[in-house]
Design a protein around this nucleic acid. Structure first.
Length: 272
DNA sequence: ATTGTCGTGCGTCATCAACC
DNA sequence: GGTTGATGACGCACGACAAT
């Protein structure tokens, strides 16, 4: 039974190193090649539904792999008989179905929490993002805020905390007044709606455009942050997998050695 | 010193699932 | 149905490194 059940995925698609298109949602064991483990379930031996390359698919959920060291490693398997196209060799699956499978892969946060291993923190210690602490430390309101680069606007102070920005540009002859509170890094956090004083030449379209631009800017900012966090979690996840591989490789070696010794012992006693 | 290659990180877009 | 967070994919920039 050579093969490897990949964590969070057991596909052979090298283009997807994280194993997105798989039926196994949460596999808490890595079976190394050449390891002669006994696979048992609570009801008896697991009946492999399919061995597809180095992928093992079993039909009984919550089956366990029992090693000679008595370690039980839980498999959570969601292969439904006859329902999963991963059981088919045909490549006629539609893009939609492919996406369905791909999207079923749980997030790194969930995978890691399922592993019971490294806890995924929202802001890692190695996070070099100023924006992380920026967003978290400022307790931003739920509505949008606009970050305006400092130095481009004229400002007048109206007392503590509250200031008035006067934006003078070609389209706003009368200027645009923005109320804001100044952040620590010279950035201006504009809460909620921008207070705009306008003359008659400014139509609602411009306000709409500004609002859309503001929303887009905010969306990009959040997505930038999300992408950064996602990459951090991905790296952590891969590191976790590599650690598990190393540990299990050692276990595998030890078991092979033990088996070898026992075989020799058995042969000796048989000769005598 | 210059150039080509490779690995890595980042920003953005598209898409999906979950939520309201 | 709109919003939001998560994530894959893509392109770009940059540094390291070897070859010339």
């Amino acid at each position: 039974m050579d093969g490897m059940v990949e964590e969070g995925g057991a596909n052979n698609n090298s283009a997807d190193p994280l194993g997105s298109s798989i039926a196994v949602t949460s596999v808490q064991s890595v079976i190394q090649a050449n390891q002669q483990s006994v696979i048992q379930s609570a009801q008896g031996s697991i009946q492999p539904v399919l061995t597809k390359g180095n992928v093992i698919l079993v039909s009984k959920p919550n089956s366990v792999i029992q090693t000679p060291q008595g370690q039980l490693q839980t498999l959570q398997v969601v292969v439904e008989a006859g329902s999963d196209e991963s059981l088919s060799n045909e490549e006629d699956a539609s893009t939609k179905k492919r996406r369905d499978i791909l999207s079923r892969r749980p997030s790194y946060r969930k995978i890691l929490s399922d592993l019971g291993g490294t806890k995924v923190e929202s802001s890692g210690s190695d996070c070099d993002s100023n924006l992380d602490s920026e967003l978290s430390s400022h307790s931003l309101p739920t509505h949008y805020q606009t970050v305006i680069p400092a130095g481009t606007l004229q400002l007048t102070s109206q007392g503590e905390g509250i200031h008035t920005l006067t934006m003078t540009n070609s389209t706003t002859a009368g200027g645009t007044i923005v109320q804001y509170t100044q952040g620590q890094d010279g950035e201006f956090y504009v809460p909620g709606e921008i207070v705009v004083t306008q003359n008659a030449s400014i139509g609602g379209n411009q306000i709409l455009a500004e609002d859309q631009a503001r929303k887009r800017e905010m969306r990009l900012l959040k997505n930038r942050e999300a992408a950064r966090e996602c990459r951090r979690k991905k790296k952590e996840y891969i590191k976790c997998l590599e650690n598990r591989v190393a540990v299990l490789e050692n276990q595998n070696k030890a078991l092979i050695e033990e088996l070898k010794t026992l075989k020799e012992l058995y042969c000796q006693t048989k000769v005598e």
